[in-house]
Design a protein around this nucleic acid. Sequence first.
DNA 1: TTCCAGGCGTATC
DNA 2: GATACGCATGGA
Length: 274
Amino acid sequence: MDYSVKAGDIILSEEHFSLDETLDCGQAFRWESVPSDFFRTYKGYFKNYPLTISETCKGKFILHNTTEADFLNIWKDYFDLDTDYGELKRRFSEDETLSAACAYAGGIRLLRQDAEECLISFIISQNNNIPRIKGIIGRLCEMYGGFPDFKRLEGVTAEELAPLRAGFRAGYLEDCARKVNSGETQLEKIREMPAEAGAKELMKIKGVGPKVAMCALLFGMYKTEAYPVDVWIKRVNERYYPNGLPDCVKGVQGIAQQYLFHYIRTGAPKESKV
DNA sequence: TTCCAGGCGTATC
DNA sequence: GATACGCATGGA
């Protein structure tokens, strides 16, 4: 990673980074591609700090209207720019499937997102599709003038959330807000726990099962050993890893999961019937 | 019309 | 502990 300041913008070089592959791969739901003169431009947020970022060519980026202080304090961490993804991918290359997945979409990075936003977002994600998840979250942000933290959601009821059209998940959000605000669920303690113990704690919330808990830990608390298993990863496990994951992913299964998730959905050859 | 979407709660065995 | 089924909503 290398950067410079130029006319109020940050100019960033990072070889292992693609906006499409990182911001539109189902780990974050508040980034949208917008028209521009550049190869690609996205608008989105960390918490409620806005950013417009362009990819001008492979490995070259502009963070528009961004001070060096904001880059160093917010965006460098958010985009996980201190982690060497080249080194990670070299480790993954020991495994044939992961090697193919990294070759297919080598610009994926694991975002260091906000814990509260991720917990809420992945409760909404269950038995749902990505465009509709984005719609519900968009309406939530509209209702509260930005993504609400749990303090903002204190005492909220499923009825009050009806305009979101979140369906049966509204009741889950109500229970989640109540448990976090009462201190029954302590996210900062969970952040310090090993993933398995943290997941067990999160699963006391109604509507949080193993998959949502692991997503909250991986995406919202950078627990890289958390390995969320959804229908797609279940297919990966059955097809490529019937005897378990390879040793080379130890400790960073969650990052490997991102490459595998994207690969099995859009890149892997179709399974032929025997 | 039916099926599916980054699952989970509940009932039943 | 394993398995079957319903669940709100909306797009394909």
